[in-house]
């Protein structure tokens, strides 16, 4: 066999081997991780708990972030996260792949969070225009110098807590639209599906929320 033919043969063998290696064993964790969301839903509705776990691990960050930014504390957020995914599990037979799995799950997370607000009677809306204890302390003190935005600003825990507090004082529909759009970066079409309101309305809410927050933060000395 000539050198070129030998090289070609080796390459062909390597190609075949790579193709073989690339297929994970059926039913293994690796195979489950390679499946799309709908396939995993189908698997766990047949009793495969590993498929459910892969799905939770895949989307836990986005779902938890949304819940946490709505409620602002880890303790209820952990409980609401569990409740969301248990509802996902129990209602999986109603899921249709017309909607993205994350959209469907965030709809559930939203309902769970709103139920919690209602149950705990937590959303007594306080306008950002109203004075609340602590407002007298100017936020400027939390920002080193008057430099352009930098990582230093991001590291100020106190500032972030202030901002989180301000966000919680927005009307709930503005808060959820703001979190899904500005923090989670979802497209308006998807947010519209999650909150069940038209895209134009959601855009208006986000715009209102941003304007109210910047106005409030400006009043508090963050300029």
């Amino acid at each position: 066999m000539s050198e070129t033919a030998l090289a070609d043969h080796k390459h062909a063998v390597a190609t075949k081997a790579a193709a073989k290696l690339a297929k994970p064993v059926k039913g293994s964790r690796e195979e489950l991780e390679s499946l799309d969301d709908y396939e995993l839903v189908k698997r766990f509705t047949k009793g495969n708990s590993d498929a459910f776990e892969v799905l939770v691990l895949r989307h836990k960050r986005q779902v938890y972030n949304f819940i946490y930014k709505m409620v602002g504390k880890p303790e209820p957020a952990d409980d609401l996260f569990q409740e969301t995914f248990m509802r996902v599990l129990k209602n999986a037979h109603t899921y249709r792949p017309r909607a993205k799995f994350t959209t469907w799950t965030l709809q559930i997370a939203r309902n769970v969070t709103l139920d919690y607000f209602k149950r705990e009677n937590l959303r007594q809306h306080v306008s950002l225009d109203a004075n609340v204890p602590g407002d007298e302390k100017p936020l400027r003190n939390l920002i080193p110098g008057n430099d352009p935005p930098s990582q230093d600003v991001l590291l100020s825990k106190e500032l972030l807590e202030e901002v989180q507090g301000a966000i919680k004082r927005l009307p709930v529909h503005q808060q959820e639209a703001l979190v899904l759009r500005v923090n989670e970066g979802l497209p308006y079409a998807e947010i519209s599906e999650i909150v069940g309101s038209p895209e134009g309305t959601v855009k208006y809410w986000v715009h209102e929320a941003v304007s109210a927050l910047t106005k409030y933060l400006g009043k508090r000395g963050l300029t």
Binding site: V56, K60, R61, Y64, N65, Y68, K69, P74, A77, D78, D79, F81, Q82, I143, P148, P149, V153, L154, S156, L159, L160, E162, V163, Q164, I167, L178, V182, N183, V210, L213, T214, L217, G218, L222, T223
Partner: peptide
Amino acid sequence: RQLLPVMNLTAPEVGEPAL
């Protein structure tokens, strides 16, 4: 500057016991 902390709000990881 005002929007920066809003856009950069972070959340912790979901607690291991909860998971």
